[in-house]
């Protein structure tokens, strides 16, 4: 018996090395990226990548399709922008305000949504997020159609000037890495294991005595809070918070990014977000309508790579050889 378990551990070791190498290369790329790319573009990419990963915590690891995550993303952007601009709090605290605001919003929306499953769950999240959208449209502190403009980036810890693009980039990268690390920890924790079991067979989880609703609500709030981290960060990067980020199109976009990259993989959504943001950026100046192109890309991906780009790689021969075997049913 102990023999079989030892075998299992030995089998895991070489993929661990491969994955560490991949991780190192990825981090090095991100550290050097501002030398080659426009920092604001990179920061936008990181914000959306974090957003998609936070969303995937719910879709990929708990099996809940939320169609209202824009409320947390855009909501946090408003909260952070307001805190930094009107209360004059430092940027790091402003982001925390966004995170807590989004978590609170997540607790309220989640409380109602988790009572239903499947498409009903998605519709309730959509409806409540739309309510929040109209609240943002009417409320005084969001300044309606104008949004909150010229948000100061401020000084990190009172010393580092974030108006400097390079400083801001490394700040965003640090927050991004922390966010991903938190998601990784949640997924690979005893709690994450229970989430997986709920995704796999909810009835069985209930019969094992798990109060599935509480676990789902906890996952929902965590996902909302991490989405808030991305949203607050974005408000500081662009120095404004507008209705775009709370609109339902944003909720749709994050679903697109996650599916493109590969649901249920940690880094898939990062690639998905990268692809969508890059397309949007390059096509913004061309004559082609962006939505049609992203729509076509999405259709091609759904038809050809059902598991998403990263999901397909994990399942390919090379991926399996490198030990990225990925088990998720579609």
């Amino acid at each position: 018996m102990t023999l079989t378990l030892d075998l299992a551990k030995r089998k895991e070791r070489s993929p661990f090395i491969v994955q560490t190498v991949f991780l190192g290369v990825g981090l090095a790329c991100l550290l050097l990226a501002p030398l080659f790319f426009y920092p604001v573009f990179l920061m936008k990419l990181l914000c959306f990548a974090l957003f998609a990963c936070a969303f995937n915590l719910l879709l990929g690891y708990t099996g809940l399709l939320s169609f209202g995550h824009a409320a947390f993303f855009g909501g946090a952007a408003y909260f952070t922008a307001h805190a930094v601009k009107e209360w004059g709090v430092p940027p790091e605290l402003g982001i925390l305000v966004g995170v807590f605001g989004a978590a609170l919003l997540g607790a309220v929306i989640g409380f109602f949504a988790i009572r239903r499953q499947g498409i009903y769950f998605a519709m309730i999240t959509l409806a409540l997020a739309q309510m929040f959208y109209f609240f943002c449209l009417q409320s005084g502190f969001t300044r309606g159609e104008d949004g909150i403009q010229s948000v100061p980036r401020g000084h990190l810890l009172g010393v580092i000037d974030l108006l400097q693009p390079t400083n801001m980039y490394y700040f965003v990268l640090t927050v991004f890495v922390i966010g991903i690390a938190i998601i990784w920890r949640i997924i690979n924790s005893p709690f994450g294991m229970v989430l997986k079991s709920i995704r796999e067979n909810e009835t069985r989880a209930v019969s094992l005595g798990y109060s599935v609703r509480n676990y789902k609500l906890a996952a929902f709030v965590m996902s909302a809070a991490l989405t808030g981290l991305a949203g607050g960060l974005k408000a500081l990067v662009f120095q404004f918070a507008t209705l775009t980020d709370v609109s339902w199109q944003m909720s749709g976009e994050v679903i697109l990014m996650t599916l493109l990259g590969g649901i249920g993989t940690l880094i898939g959504p990062i690639f998905g977000a990268g692809l969508v943001v890059t397309l949007q950026n390059y096509l913004a100046t061309s004559e082609f309508p962006v939505t049609i192109i992203t729509g076509v890309v999405f259709m091609v991906c759904v038809l050809l790579f059902r598991r998403g780009i990263v999901g397909e790689f994990y399942n390919s021969r090379l991926g399996r050889k490198l030990g990225f075997e990925h088990r998720h049913k579609h």
Binding site: L5, R185, I186, S189, P190, F191, G192, M193, V194, K196, S197, E200, N201, T203, R204, A205, S207, L208, G209, Y210, A218, M222, R327, H328, K329
Partner: peptide, 27 residues
Amino acid sequence: AVFPHLTVLDNVRVALQRPNRLATQFW
């Protein structure tokens, strides 16, 4: 009713997690 994509060991461990108070620790 098993958890199809988990290993046999993990299936049993998931069942053991709650009674052994190892289910909510996300950290």
